[in-house]
Nucleic acid binder design. Structure first.
Length: 343
DNA sequence: AAAGTACACAACCGCTTTTGC
DNA sequence: AGCAAAAGCGGTTGTGTACTT
């Protein structure tokens, strides 16, 4: 039992490059009869080819709406954006590029664009800049997490360093920034659960989407994607990823930014300060400072001295304030004291 | 000029998903 | 519901061509 092969391999059907007369026969047949019934088509059309081969030839080469030739800069940019979002889903990518086939895009990606990205120092798989070694940053980040969590920092303690509460909050902010810039390598980046003072693990607060719930994925498992890439995608008016696309993107791993949950919908906030927001069956762009409602439990860090956030705190904004803040010098001093090998 | 190598891309292969009965 | 055919998909291979030695 089982499925019969797509064509009889023993009948000596022709393989390899198509001859012009074969193309002519195929086009003439399809012009007259339309396409479909690929299995029976070769016999009727007088082609010594497997039906699958005929289909492929038509779909990838002979179709009249196929656009050939060099990819434009716009097309390249679209492919990069979509690849960052969808990965090697060539047919989905092709559906956003009229006239281009999945095969053509795949080939173009593998031969041209991959190389180009590597030359630019960008990993063509993750779309993240290739860095030499993140381990020093990771070490510091993990030490910070421990310090914030239990007051212990190597041989130092927060107490014998007389650290101010404000500075401690700023250290939390530094820790969050380290998490954002090292998304792939960081454990638990989805939840910021090392932030013991003012947040709980976000995953605990996620509600499944009422329209299309995927609870097993909603439990904090959001994919690591460069937030800038997604932001630039949703800034493009023509680009409106479907909910399924978003799950394809975010479904498996972790998102290197804040994950926040409104009362009614799942929302994702990227470190770049924009978020794809799911309403109905479409994602739409919502400014991070917009109307998302966030509970105190999910609000993340509040920058010291600012009022309690009611509409979603933003690490980027906090970071900018931190950099502008003259009093941050004392925090850096604390940071350096803590990270120095002896005290 | 010939051989070797790298590259681009068309086509194939094996598998999964969808469709129709 | 179950099955087979058809269609779709993505990784891989084969082949022609350009470039280098």
């Amino acid at each position: 039992m089982g499925r019969s092969p797509c064509c009889d391999q023993d009948k000596g059907v022709k393989k390899g490059p198509w001859m012009p007369e074969e193309d002519y026969k195929l086009v003439a047949y399809i012009d007259k009869n339309g396409y479909g019934k690929w299995r029976s088509l070769p016999n009727i059309a007088g082609l010594n080819r497997c039906g699958k081969s005929c289909r492929l030839r038509w779909m990838n080469y002979l179709r009249p709406d196929i656009r050939r030739g060099e990819f434009t800069e716009e097309e390249e940019s679209t492919v990069v954006k979509l690849h960052a979002l969808l990965g090697n889903k060539w047919s989905k990518i092709a559906s956003h590029l009229p006239g281009r086939t999945d095969n053509e895009i795949k080939n173009y990606w593998n031969t041209h664009m991959r190389k180009k990205m590597l030359q630019m120092g960008i990993d063509p798989i993750t779309h993240e800049p290739k860095t030499n070694d993140l381990s020093p940053i990771l070490d510091v980040s993990q030490m910070l997490a421990a310090a914030i969590g239990n007051g212990q920092f190597g041989n130092n303690t927060l107490f014998n360093n007389n650290i101010a509460v404000e500075d401690l909050l700023k250290l939390q902010l530094i820790h969050k920034m380290l998490q954002i810039i090292t998304p792939k390598a960081m454990p638990n980046t989805n939840s910021f659960n090392t932030n013991s003072l003012d947040t709980k693990p976000v995953a605990n607060n996620i509600k499944t989407n009422p329209v299309n719930p995927k609870p097993e994925q909603a439990a904090g498992q959001l994919n690591a994607i460069d937030p800038h890439v997604f932001t630039s995608q949703i800034e493009n008016e023509d680009f409106m990823p479907s909910f399924e696309d978003a799950w394809d993107c975010f479904g498996d791993n972790q998102l290197p930014g804040l994950v926040m949950v409104s009362q009614e919908n799942l929302n994702y906030q990227t470190g770049a300060g924009m978020m794809p927001d799911y309403y109905g069956d479409q994602l739409r762009e919502v400014p991070s400072t917009g109307s998302i409602s966030v509970t105190p439990e999910t609000s993340g860090l509040n920058y010291p001295g600012t009022t309690q956030h009611s509409s979603g705190s933003n690490v980027q904004e906090d970071w900018e304030k931190f950099l502008d803040d003259e009093t941050s010098d004392s925090c850096w001093k604390s940071f350096l004291d803590l990270t120095s090998p002896t005290s």
